[in-house]
Amino acid sequence: MKNLLLIGLVSITSTASTAALASGHSMPVADAWSNITWDKTAKDMPKGDYARGEKLESYGLCITCHGEQGIAPTRNAPNLAGNTALYTYKALMDYQSGLRNEGNGKASVMHAATTPMSKQDMADLAVYYAAQKLPAPTGHYTPPANIKKLVTKGDVSRMITPCASCHGVHGEGRDITPALAGQVPAYFIRTMEAYKHGKRTNDIHEGMAQFTQDLTDAEIQGLAEYYANLMPKHPSHPAGKE
């Protein structure tokens, strides 16, 4: 726990400066979330309108990179289908405020894409994407024992709690903890690396980053494969069918 607290302290000071140094481009400096400020924000989230979200998917050009119904066509963009509404809502807010910037230029398109959005727009998109479904994974995959253990049991010696305890046994996510089942592996890896290297700092009190510090690159790769191959709780097609 010592480890964790220490990192937590460091992170508070580093969050603001990361944003400030983000780039020569104009990325605003945003305040980090506390549990209190986030809880209030989540409570005040407008009721999302599915139909408006569906329109905004095209009008807002989300569909260009994130694909139809939030199923990403390349390894560049994450799948948005089936993620929790709160996670998507928070991600959009954090891109808009500049809190999620991931270093020079790495999130500037999402910052631009969210700049015109109102909170209502974000809620609409969040609700729309939460209702979309990812296809069942194809192909055969057997998780290596060490990866399976990290997911279900964690690693006490490194104070890594099991991924499933927050992200769910189906990788379905909960509230602001994102769904991971079926996620694009390249996106998964770079997200974990960004957390690990202190470049992604929009989690509350390093709620995620703390678990990435001690993961090896090979473990991150293994987890990416595990989750890419995990059956979503509600797939759009049953396994084996397209």
Binding site: S23, G24, E102, G103, N104, G105, K106, A186, I189, R190, E193, A194, H197, K199, R200
Partner: peptide, 9 residues
């Protein structure tokens, strides 16, 4: 691979 996010412009 995705270059580390602290790359210089």
């Amino acid at each position: 691979e995705w270059t580390l996010p602290n790359w210089n412009a």
